[in-house]
């Protein structure tokens, strides 16, 4: 299956990865080989098999609704490149308002 340059552009935008021009061919080939593998897997007849979302045949353990988290904001916030007065700061996100 062929991947167009436009698709590659969208994928890189979605994944927030910048792909240099010199890398494009290599990455296109790699992505195509992944899709080839998927095609290969699709050859297997799975029509009689129940779909499975997770490899473990187990059920979720649930938590009681209690508050027990110790929140150390000032410690966590040191991980952020920018912060002020208990807020995390990000580059301005301008929504069309």
């Amino acid at each position: 299956m062929k991947i167009s340059e436009d698709t590659l552009k969208i994928i890189s935008q979605l994944s927030k990865l910048e792909i240099e021009d010199v890398m494009k061919d290599k990455i296109l080939k790699e992505l195509e080989s992944i899709l080839l593998m998927v095609d290969k897997m699709n050859e297997v007849d799975t029509s009689k098999i129940k779909p499975m979302s997770h490899p473990l045949n187990q059920a979720q353990n649930l938590r009681e609704d209690i508050i027990s988290e110790n929140i150390e904001r000032d410690k966590y916030i040191k991980n952020a490149p920018h912060s002020d007065n208990g807020y995390y700061l990000s580059p301005k996100v301008i929504e069309q308002k």
């Binding site: 649930l62 938590r63 009681e64 609704d65 929140i71 904001r73 966590y76 991980n79 007065n85 807020y87």
Partner: peptide
């Protein structure tokens, strides 16, 4: 007050795992 009830799980720090609240279910 801002971020005083944001835990490491809510912040999505690496290595944390979500555990479902039974009451929400």
């Amino acid at each position: 007050e801002q971020n005083l009830q944001a835990s490491i799980i809510d912040l999505g720090l690496p290595g944390v795992l979500p555990v479902l609240n039974k009451k929400a279910i």
